[in-house]
Amino acid sequence: MRRLNPAAILMLAPTHLLLFLVIALPSIYVFWLSLNESTYGSDLTFVGFNNYVTVLTSPYFWRAALNTLIVVNAVVYIELLIAIGMAALFLGGVRYPKIMFAIVLMPYAISEVVGVLVWKIMLNTGSGVLARTIEALGFGMFNWSVSPPLALSVVTLISIWHHLPFTFLLIYAGMLAIPKSLYEASRIDGASRWQEFWRITLPLTVPAILISLIFRFVFAFRLFSEVWLLTAGGPARLTEVLAVYLYQSGFKYGEFGTASATGWLMVLGSLGVASVYLWAMHRRMVSGND
């Protein structure tokens, strides 16, 4: 670790100050809120860790946590696999690369709310174009909104659709950074296309994969609009995710204490899930692998 001289510290100070003001300070305040009972029009009452007890003993919290965990894992890993496949395709060369690139990135440019609502209309049971197609193909009525597993699958699908460009970009950039000469060397060593991908491209994309996993786990944990706009947590609160649970307690019931506690538990949860990859990343950085 290099030592910073005072001038360097001074120059970094505005950034740190900004980070402190917009991230650290609100986080600390939210933590303080989580130790208090608080609602509109009343003063804070210190209750210690009672809010955490309330949240952690709530079956709805645990159901939301389980739903979040299932959806987040499905989203992140499926998205990663598709992104790797697509990036490999692009790396191998596609026709009209600029147009293809624009098409692939498009979902990311669409407002999340608009995207979800369009999907919702297309999937509308009995009248949506996709729902009717599925029905016409003989799969029966696509009545996802009353079936928690189906509804969460739809949430997963839309979430993947929306965030795939982000993961794709990270992975593709990682693959582009691999020196061309490595591929040439491997071709001379006798590697087939498949071996080339498996033995060269994939291992060397691991850093990009780790970064995208960390980012996506943390982002995906905040999953809200897909669920809120599609099912609002229903039917019977069976499709709630943590962010919806937090929204209910904070912005519907006005219970800021439990909402803050949920917020902190979400931070710990997403860190917990991402920590495996953070740790792997740290190890690579320490051992100097890239």
């Binding site: 509308n124 049971t125 009525m141 009545n143 009353v146 229903g234 039917p235």
Partner: peptide, 12 residues
């Protein structure tokens, strides 16, 4: 009742 009645909104 419509099959998606629990998710049916006012607009729908």
């Amino acid at each position: 009742l419509p099959s998606n009645v629990t998710a049916l909104g006012l607009d729908e």
